[in-house]
Amino acid sequence: MNYYVETILVYAGVDIIACLALNLQFGVSGIVNFSFIVFQAAGAYTAAVLSMPPDTASGMSFQHYVLGLQLPFPIPWLGGALVGGLLAIPVGVLLLRRLRSDYQAIALLVLSVIVNTVITNYRPLFNGAAGLSVIPPPLSERIDPYTATYQYLYVGITFVCCLLVLFVANRIVNSPYGRTLRAMREHELAASALGKNLVALKLTVFVVGGIIAGLSGAILVGFISYWAPITWLYPETIVLFAAIIVGGRGNNLGAILGGLLVPLGFEEITRFIPTGFGPPGLGPAIQWVAIGLLIIGFLWFRPKGVLPEPRRVFNEAGIEESPFMEVRAS
């Protein structure tokens, strides 16, 4: 497997995991989590500092960071997922509790920008703007990361994580709990008038999403060995939103499809622009205009996405027919 293919596969896995998490929050529950990327970053930073040696160790003196516990795999990944989930609690309690949903979205957007600003300017925590580098890849003490075996292994672990997250997401979406989340998305007031505790519902789904986002960050940072504020600017969240909107809000398969197409397409689009063509900012400009047009175009022409949320039909015995049978457009 060449490095390019490996990179594509790992990125695709990370994006799919992130999209499944965001789909639970945005697609299923209607929580517009504009600070999603912060939770991915929390997982990445945590996994990094749990696996790195202390910053006093030789060769690390060029950067400053907390912890540096050199813990073996998979503890850093579990730690990343845990911190992603823990971070969701205060954020959820503060911002999801009383605000109207559009203000929640704005508050979360602002949070995303601000957390990035703080991490950029405060060096002792995660080395500020320069970020963390030379993060040891998981299991690198046992297997040489530059071998083909390791590449297969990393892609394999990523794939297993994808399946695990899909399993969890499917259980949630296809359960009565998921149905209540969808009801909350459709009409919050009516849901609360029917005995639904909106705060608890939002908090649980926020935490679950945070855990999965944290895991995605841990997988990514183990692969690229580098993490800095510039890798998790707030527009990264918008790319994931575009993926969900294109793939189909509320549909896990849609989230996977969007996660495969949009973020990867976004990264790859610049490959097709001949180098030296146009001003230096042209590549990113085309990327962002494409993302913006995707979002606006889909919201206008096909708001339910390529794979719309399936309609749930119950058979005579009172059992819901498998939604996978009905992925057709409605």
Binding site: R179, A183, E186, H187, E309, R311, R312, F314
Partner: peptide, 10 residues
Amino acid sequence: SEFAQLTVLE
């Protein structure tokens, strides 16, 4: 105040 994208049974 129906849940528009849910079926009647749901």
